[in-house]
Design a protein around this nucleic acid. Structure first.
Length: 603
DNA sequence: CCCCCCCC
């Protein structure tokens, strides 16, 4: 059928209990997948699945776990039963003198193939199985009827401190489970929380947590009270440590977004020692998602993104509904998909994000929000890396500096918030204005969105701006009280207001005309100056004001609009709001038309 | 044992 050659004897070699050597680890064996199966877990729907596989060299088979970043190969159907694969990177987890293969990277050589040979279990061949039943009902990562579920053989003791024993092979994080008591991991801290103090009816205390990562996986470690005193200062974000003697327990999923069924509890006896030899430890392992594909990721899912920062807002303080003070800061990211997205940073990440220019930022573990279409929000366990030294980062830098910075980005997050899913401009879905009216768009309960290309015909000039609260983000109308302008929301007065646009404009395309409503962003796009300037001109010089108004007329834009029915004075009508106004980029438009000419129906 | 990640 084909000339593929499985790596002879590899399963026996893996099952052998002698030390792993570099030759073996670098060998990139070719094997056949005999089966691949999701390992169930006890916790709810937010569970992070993991796959167990049986691999074969044609003569023997062997148990393997796939690192979670390989899940997509299985989910997409790329890897299936009997696929022939190359294992590009792996490690082994020694369990009671038997090994469990942990596949860190692999690729498909032949997706569909007949079963090769009649392999027998390499593990059984190598040593007699020592079966030990796990506690009833206890979920385990690597548990199955065929993998012996055992306690780990303790690493050979060469000394009493982790550093002295550090020369041995570290235990892989992926293999940690409550059944393993004697292990020592070598891990990088990718996130360290602030110290949190709590007080509730059951008592009070303090805690902190770190996220630990090696090249097999990541795990959260939490320390309470006394452990905060002994360990908090010891951990530093980005550094690598030998860690042992922490308790492995079931992860409390409500406090964690990591893909690990377990977490560590740090206590008095936990040993932590910084490790300066960081060989083999990746900085952070990412699974980047394109900003253009955010719509495909449901609200509240956790993803990794990388992008160029095009805007960094000032940090702002706010009080949440529980009365707790917090700091947030919004940054805007763009990537080569041509999309932009807004990301909210919280707490110390918000305070510390001071990077001038257009840095590249890699975010591991951000939460997808549906605010304003799609936006992002950091979680407690996020890892933020500015200008990381990784391939994706350099590629983005090159693209951005070579002209990407001049692109017009499609916004995943519109400026007005509350939008539905389709608030991004789509050239393919431009509707004619008459069609929008005739089709009754927006006459249902919920708002409907559409894209349009239209020319400004008229801007109502009688009430173009209102005096607003100058506090960033307030925007509330303020009232002249002679000794100042009062904001009810902020409960204070200001010397002068900040005018903000409130716009009503008529636009037309080939089919007809439509009245659109919009606010400050729309006015800024139309007049290229803040509302204060326009109000000032109107008071000072009517002719200049008229000139400003006229300057907006006759210009064509791409729009994203929101059609929504409302009732005012007993009259129900559909109002059309401008979600986004995009100046035409003629090069882009021409390229699009050129593309159309090469489609089959244009031929 | 013990934490609740927020806003527009």
């Amino acid at each position: 059928m084909s000339s593929v050659q499985l790596t002879a004897g590899i399963c026996s070699r893996l099952a052998d209990t002698s030390e792993l050597n570099d030759d073996l680890l670098d060998s990139k064996p070719t094997v056949q997948i005999l089966s691949v199966k999701k390992v169930g877990s006890a916790s709810g729907p937010n569970t992070n699945d993991r796959y167990r596989a049986i691999v074969s060299d044609g003569e023997h088979f062997f148990q393997a776990m796939l690192a979670t970043q390989l899940n997509k190969l299985v989910d997409s159907g790329e890897i299936t039963k009997h696929s022939i694969v190359s294992i590009d990177k792996f490690t082994c987890n020694k369990v009671q003198e038997k090994r469990l293969l942990i596949i860190l990277d692999m690729h498909v050589i032949i997706q569909e193939h007949d079963k090769i040979g009649n392999p027998v279990n390499a593990g059984e061949q190598a040593t007699p199985a020592v079966q030990k039943t796990p506690a009833l009902g206890a979920p385990t990562t690597a548990s199955s009827s065929t993998i012996p579920q055992t306690t780990t053989n303790p690493p050979k003791r060469q000394g009493s401190t982790p550093a002295a024993r550090g020369k041995g092979t570290p235990f892989p994080i992926e293999g940690l489970s409550p059944y393993q008591n004697h292990w020592m991991i070598k891990a990088r801290v990718t996130n360290k929380s602030d110290i949190k103090v709590w007080s509730n009816q059951r008592g009070e205390g303090k805690l902190f947590s770190v996220v630990l990562m090696d090249d097999t996986g990541e795990i959260k470690a939490t320390g309470f009270n006394a452990a905060v005193d002994t360990l908090y200062d010891k951990f530093e974000e980005g550094k690598v440590y030998w860690i042992s003697k922490a308790k492995v327990q079931l992860a409390k999923k409500q406090f964690s977004t990591l893909s690990n069924e377990y977490e560590l509890q740090l206590d008095r006896s936990t040993e932590v020692e910084e490790c300066h030899d960081t060989t083999g430890l990746p900085t952070i392992r990412y699974n980047f998602v394109s900003l253009g594909s955010l719509e495909e990721h449901p609200k509240d899912s956790i993803i990794d993104v990388i992008g160029v920062v095009t805007d960094i807002a000032s940090p702002s303080e706010f009080t949440n509904r529980l009365g707790r003070q917090s700091v947030k800061r919004e940054i805007t990211l763009v990537d080569r998909s041509g999309f932009s997205v807004r990301c909210t940073l919280w707490g110390k990440h918000a305070e510390n994000f001071n990077h001038p220019g257009n840095p590249i930022v890699a975010l591991k573990g951000v939460k997808v929000s549906d605010f304003g279409g799609r936006s992002l929000s950091t979680t407690g366990a996020v890892a933020i890396d500015v200008d990381p030294d990784i391939a994706e980062s350099h590629a983005l830098r090159g693209w951005f500096d070579a002209g990407g910075n001049n692109e017009q980005f499609k916004a995943q997050s519109n400026s007005f918030g509350g939008g539905g899913g389709s608030s991004t401009f789509s050239r393919e879905e431009i509707r004619s204005l008459n069609d929008v009216k005739d089709s009754g768009l927006g006459t249902s309960d919920k708002p409907e969105f559409f894209s349009a290309r239209a020319t400004v015909m008229h801007v109502k000039n009688d009430n173009i701006a209102y005096p607003a609260c100058p506090t960033q983000g307030c925007n509330k109308k303020v009232f002249d009280q002679h000794d100042g302008w009062r904001c009810e929301k902020c409960d204070r007065s200001y010397e002068r207001p900040e005018y903000r646009y409130i716009i009503s404009l008529a636009v037309a395309d080939y089919s007809g005309q439509l009245w659109l409503q919009g606010f400050n962003d729309l006015g800024l796009a139309l007049f290229n100056k803040p509302a204060n300037d326009v109000v000032e001109a109107k008071d000072r010089d009517e002719a200049e004001f008229n000139k400003i108004m006229e300057s907006a007329i006759g210009v064509t834009y791409n729009f994203t609009c929101r059609a929504k029915q409302d009732t005012y004075n007993d009259q129900t009508r559909v109002r059309y709001g401008v979600q986004k106004i995009i100046p035409l980029n003629y090069k882009e438009e021409a390229n699009y038309l050129m593309g159309l000419l090469s489609t089959p129906w244009a031929q």
